[in-house]
Each structure stands twice: as C-alpha cells, then as structure tokens.
C-alpha cells in the first residue's frame, strides 16, 4: 500500500486502503474507554482546520481526533463575510504553506476546493466536505458503524432517503457502501434524485415500495430547504408526510428491526419523528463516536510531504 498524502474522496480509495482504515479505527475506538484517551502518534505535528462553512460537529470531531493523537490543533477562522468572490483560496494556501502545518482539514461550499488545495500544499489535505462533491470521513465512519452492526456487510440493503442531488454525504457514503458490496436503494422527491446517479441504485417511488425491498438499514439525509431556489417539494410538512419516518412508518421499522442512520443534525418532525431517536437500533450517536475514531485512523494513515527530517533544533 503506497502512502497517501491526501484524502479527497472515496472513489480513489482501493479496497485495501478502505479495509486498513476500518481496521485501524477499531483500536482507536477502544482507547475511548480508557482513562487516558491519548496516544503520542502525532506529537509535534500540527493540524489546522480550515472551515469555510459553519460546522461545529465535524470540526470538533476532527479537533478531538487530532488531540487524541497528540497533535497541535489550530482552528483557522474564515469569516464567511471575508470570502468575497474572486478572492483566491490559493492565497490562503500560500499562507498555510508558510506556517508549515502538516495537516489541513478543509470544508468549503464549492466542490473541488480540497483538490485545488491538495495540488498546491505539501500538507496532507483531508476533505471535510466540499460543496455537493464528497465527505469521505463521513463515509468512513458510516461504513465503520455499518460493520459494527453487520460484520459481513456484503449484500446488505441500505435505503438512502432524501436529497440525493445536493448531498455530498449520499455521494460518498453510497460509493463506499457499494465498494463494500452493499446494495443501495434511494427514495426522495423526484427532482432530488438526479438522472446522473449511479445505475446500480434502485429507485423507489414510495416508502411502501421501499419496505417491500426489505432494507436492513435506512439512512436518512438531512433536508436543507435553504438550498432550494425553485422548490423541489412544496413544504417540510409534505416532505415529512411522504418521505419522513412518521409514527406509522416507525412502527414498521421497529417491527422489521431495521437500523437507522443519519449524518446529523436531525430535523425532528421532518426526516423522522422524535421516537426514532430513542429507538435501540438508531445509530446516530454511535456514528458521532465512531467519527472520532475513524478520523484518528485517517490522520494516522496520511503522510504529509512537509518534512522528512526529524527535529534537530538545539535550544
């Protein structure tokens, strides 16, 4: 396995690399039960989070992951207002190059920005979500969580519900699931199920139809109404009626023992009713915990090109 500088998407990962990452995350997770949760793996290395989109959860998850590996973490604040059009992201990259950081965790509303940064930086770049493109660490934590429930994931059936068009989570997670042999079905408002989706996706018209397919797990996507200029569906209320896990649908989910995942944060009463959160097969909090472990595995695995020499500064 060749060492890799960056993690930008799921497509480019080999199955060997995926297995390595999923396997490595396990011991890191075991660490969380110990009184000292830290290992010295990245001591002396600097990790910088560069978030052009607000996200407390993902940023904190990366921060905790880096700190548990003993790295120094800096949050590079990019005020949304200062990001004027035409301002060059590459100027920022030059700044970071000069700061000699080893890892850049980047989130940006434009697809492909991490690729651009990775081309110009010696630091390892981890894509923490770019536009509609990719969210590879989310996919890895989802896969890790799936494996915890189904150690043999092949031919399991996962139904992804919601905004497939705008979701980088749907792109990355479904890609990784398919690489693990999972069968993927999708359900959502017509305009949000793009024609360009992978041919292997099974498309359902309704929840009833999807239930007949006997999914092992339902992955609910967060619906973001603010992304929609011309509406894709009339209202959140109607969305819930047609594509949400209502009380009636939850009864069926419970009866059939279907597992539930959601990348968070959850819109209660839209994607799902409150009861689902207390369902014993609801994996949402487990996903959060696994997020830290898999991100530790990612940082552990990547090899920055910042420095090959060991520290030899004399004081």
């Amino acid at each position: 396995m060749e060492p890799r500088k960056d993690l930008l998407d799921i497509e480019s990962l080999s199955s060997e690399e995926i297995e390595f990452l999923l396997k490595t995350a396990g011991p890191f997770k075991d660490l969380f039960e110990k009184s000292v949760k830290k290992v010295p793996t990245l001591r002396g290395k600097s990790v910088l989070t560069l978030f052009y989109e607000p996200s407390t959860r993902t940023r904190s998850s990366f921060e905790i992951a880096a700190k548990r590996l003993s790295a120094d973490v800096t949050n590079f604040s990019v005020a949304a207002s200062s990001v004027v059009k035409g301002e060059s992201v590459l100027d920022t990259v030059d700044t970071l190059q000069a700061m000699k950081v080893d890892y850049i965790i980047v989130r940006h509303p434009a697809s492909g920005i991490p690729n651009l940064i990775a081309k110009h930086a010696n630091a390892s770049v981890v894509n923490a979500g770019d536009g509609f493109h990719a969210h590879p660490t989310q996919a890895l934590l989802d896969a890790f969580t799936l494996r915890e429930v189904f150690p043999k994931s092949a031919r399991k059936r996962v139904l992804i519900v919601g905004d497939i068009l705008h979701s980088r989570v749907a792109r990355s997670t479904s890609t990784l699931f398919r690489k693990l042999g999972v069968e993927v079905g999708v359900l959502g408002p017509g305009g949000l199920i793009p024609d360009g989706k992978p041919k292997e996706f099974k498309v359902f018209r309704s929840f009833d139809e999807a239930f007949e397919w006997k999914p092992d797990l339902i992955y609910l996507l967060r619906i973001q109404l603010e992304r929609q200029k011309a509406q894709f569906f009339p209202s959140l209320h109607e969305y819930h009626q047609v594509y949400g896990v209502t009380n009636e649908r939850f009864a069926r989910v419970e009866k059939e023992g279907i597992w539930i995942m959601h990348p968070g944060p959850v819109n209660r009463g839209v994607e799902l009713v409150d009861n689902v959160m207390r369902y014993e097969r609801c994996l949402i909090n487990q996903q959060v915990e696994n997020g830290i472990a898999t991100r530790m595995a990612v940082l552990y695995w990547l090899k920055p090109q910042t420095s090959s020499r060991e520290a030899e500064v004399e004081v």
């Binding site: 497509e11 697809s111 492909g112 536009g131 509609f132 493109h133 990719a134 792109r171 360009g196």
Partner: peptide
Amino acid sequence: GRVSYQLGI
C-alpha cells in the same frame, strides 16, 4: 449528467 453528479458540480 453522470459526471456533474459525481463531481458535485
């Protein structure tokens, strides 16, 4: 199309 979907553009 397929490529715009994959690239998220």
